[in-house]
């Protein structure tokens, strides 16, 4: 068709402009992480004079950054482990066994998809306080588990229902226990659904700021986004260090995303479409 190359060129230009708008701020962030105050002030757009890790080293030695990072890793990993374990167990019962309250139980889990848990923060606070879980990592982990279970149960029930009944039957005939059938025959097949359930919950939990802000007050228990607010306040005159902190905070999830972009995009957009 006439004019098509021009139009495609225009679209490419539009996409290139968009890519620039998305990436250039991140590029400036990384470059500024190597700069001194004077450099950021005098030549904000140029490359740093040297790629010395002065700012990053100060983060390492003078701040609790590594501790915040470690807390985020612990809280996220523990939450995901519980979400996948409890979610798979419940989904397996709902998907593979007919029982009287099955529909009700599945409704109970699915109703959780509609609840914005953040608006229940006051009763959650009171609940955690009564259980002695305020200002603990365990408290955060349990709240995140509750937040993630509905979507995990939803995804895994759907997937486990599709597995053929013959698999279970033949295992039973050979005398395998229900537990063995589940662990050795059925669950290995459900791994892709478990991964989707994990990724879908990993990003919101890793990035969450609101729950730690309310539940965690000890500095040594703070997660990365929360710790970042402490750190940004303390170093507010040291711009290079601030940029270094942002860069290091963005690094882990960015690298993981670049390595697994297909799964991330599928997991996060499907999470919305559910």
């Amino acid at each position: 068709m006439k004019g098509e190359p021009i139009k495609n060129g225009l679209i490419q230009a539009l996409l290139a402009l968009n890519a620039f708008v998305m990436l250039y701020p991140l590029f400036v962030m990384v470059m500024s992480a190597f700069k001194s105050n004077a450099e950021i002030f005098d030549s904000p757009f140029s490359l740093p004079a040297s790629f010395a890790l002065t700012n990053a080293a100060r983060m390492w030695s003078d701040t609790s950054f590594m501790l915040y990072l470690l807390n985020s890793v612990i809280v996220t990993a523990a939450s995901l482990a519980l979400i996948v374990a409890f979610g798979t167990m419940a989904a397996y019962a709902i998907a593979r066994y007919p029982f009287r309250l099955s529909a009700l139980v599945s409704m109970f889990f699915l109703a959780g998809l509609m609840v914005p848990l953040k608006l229940a923060i006051i009763p959650l606070f009171i609940q955690l306080n009564a259980l002695g879980l305020i200002d603990t990592r365990a408290g955060l982990v349990l709240v995140y588990t509750a937040m993630g279970l509905p979507s995990a149960v939803f995804i895994l029930t759907g997937f486990l229902r599709t597995l053929p009944a013959e698999l279970e039957e033949s295992a039973r005939i050979e005398g395998a226990t229900e537990l063995r059938t589940m662990l050795q025959i059925m669950l290995p097949l459900a791994r892709p659904a478990m991964i989707i359930a994990a990724i879908q919950n990993a990003v919101p939990i890793w990035n969450d700021f609101f729950f730690p802000l309310v539940f965690i007050s000890s500095d040594r228990l703070k997660t990365l986004p929360q710790g970042l607010t402490v750190f940004m306040g303390e170093y507010n005159t040291d711009w290079g260090v601030l940029f270094a902190g942002l860069t290091l905070a963005a690094l882990p999830i960015s690298l993981l995303y670049i390595a697994l972009s297909r799964q991330f995009i599928a997991g996060l957009t499907q999470g919305a479409i559910k």
Binding site: N18, A19, M22, L23, N207, F209, P225, L228, L246, A249
Partner: peptide
């Protein structure tokens, strides 16, 4: 992949940046 990259960052990082 590029247009989705900021989506995976925490609002805290993006806000401060």
């Amino acid at each position: 992949v590029i247009v989705f990259l900021p989506v995976v960052l925490s609002a805290v990082i993006v806000g401060f940046l």
